[in-house]
């Protein structure tokens, strides 16, 4: 596990050109969300030339794109959750992360329980249809394995904040949080009067992850990516990020629909790296490939309730698993 990260780092240091693509050209110093100096364009990635995505092994892609202390978003609304990438982050022992995700789900429960995160930005932290995320609760209620700062929003706020990030806006305005206690406990929720109607509107800072990681069905050989089914907030999360990694089920000749028909396609130049990871969303699902492993979501409840049982599960299923 540690070796793959070291190997990735040495790869990065050598600034290897992968075919015609220099991934490192895209890796600019991390900028914390909300800390942009006035007047400085927030988004560095909108600077030409637009490099195309590189195909990398997952371990190399994580080693190159995810750095300690980064703000990282692994998105996927129940569908297409990038579990394999989350497990690789655990294997590489990356710490100090700010984890961003609307629905933290089991993948963040696992990363939080392994001590990867110091902060969580989220809007619904449960095991869907089952109950609590026990590792998240243990971190919040008992600071185990380390304290976890939380920045808590509503779904509407995070959806708007991702869209604002994708649009290159500093913040998102919406009709939200009216009458709720959430603004009292989250200083990153503000209100402003609409200048034309006077209506008070909620404002939250745009989400701009250092790295967004999503899972998708297909990439073509040029590195364009197709997402189908419940598409969630993945497009916005990728476009809002400074670096983006997509894991895919398979590589095909083309992801374009005839005549450019509507589909959620992420063009190659919006993505830094692609890793081919069949089954990379399990126990979540990939529409058209495999179904959600509902029984595992139920079983996770008992595994995650107990610290020792949780650690044993991670050892057997994450650390012992071969990095793809």
């Amino acid at each position: 596990m540690g070796t793959s990260r070291a190997a990735g780092r040495s790869l990065a240091r050598r600034r290897v050109r992968l075919s015609h693509i220099d991934v490192d050209n895209r890796l600019t110093p991390p900028i914390r969300p909300g800390t942009f100096p006035r007047g400085v364009p927030a988004r560095s990635r909108a600077v030409p030339p637009f490099a195309m995505s590189a195909f990398l092994p997952l371990a190399d892609a994580i080693a190159r794109l995810v750095r300690p202390g980064d703000a990282v978003a692994l998105e996927g609304f129940t569908h297409l959750i990038p579990f394999a990438a989350g497990h690789e982050i655990i294997r590489q022992g990356v710490t100090g992360l700010t984890l961003i995700r609307m629905t933290p789900d089991l993948v963040y429960d696992q990363m939080i329980g392994c001590g990867c995160a110091t902060k969580l930005v989220f809007s619904w932290g449960g095991n869907p249809g089952v109950g609590s995320l026990h590792r998240l609760r243990d971190a919040v209620e008992h600071q185990w394995p380390r304290p976890l700062e939380i920045e808590e929003h509503s779904h509407s706020a995070m959806a708007h904040a991702y869209a604002a990030g994708a649009a290159g806006m500093p913040s998102a305005f919406f009709r939200g949080y009216r009458g709720s206690d959430l603004p009292a406990v989250n200083p990153r929720i503000a209100f402003i009067d609409d200048p034309f109607t006077g209506e008070p509107l909620a404002v939250v800072p745009a989400l701009r992850p250092d790295v967004t990681i999503v899972h998708a069905q297909k990439a073509d050989r040029d590195g364009n990516v197709l997402v189908e089914g419940i598409v969630g907030v993945q497009k916005e999360a990728v476009l809002a990020a400074r670096r983006a990694l997509v894991t895919v089920e398979e590589v095909v000749d083309t992801v374009a629909k005839p005549g450019g028909q509507n589909a959620v396609v992420l063009p190659s130049w919006t993505i830094d790296a692609i890793a081919v990871v069949p089954g990379g969303a399990r126990p979540s699902y990939a529409h058209g490939y495999y179904a959600r492993d509902n029984a595992f979501y139920v079983a996770w409840d008992a595994i995650a309730r107990d610290r020792d049982r949780f650690r044993a599960w991670i050892d057997a299923n994450v650390h012992a698993a071969v990095a793809r």
Partner: peptide, 23 residues
């Protein structure tokens, strides 16, 4: 079982993104 089961998408008139849903 979850809010994003494939069954919901397969039997829907259409499926929109989460930002579109809330906006």
């Amino acid at each position: 079982l979850s809010i994003g089961d494939g069954e919901l998408c397969e039997t829907a008139l259409t499926t929109v993104s989460v930002p579109e849903m809330f906006q």
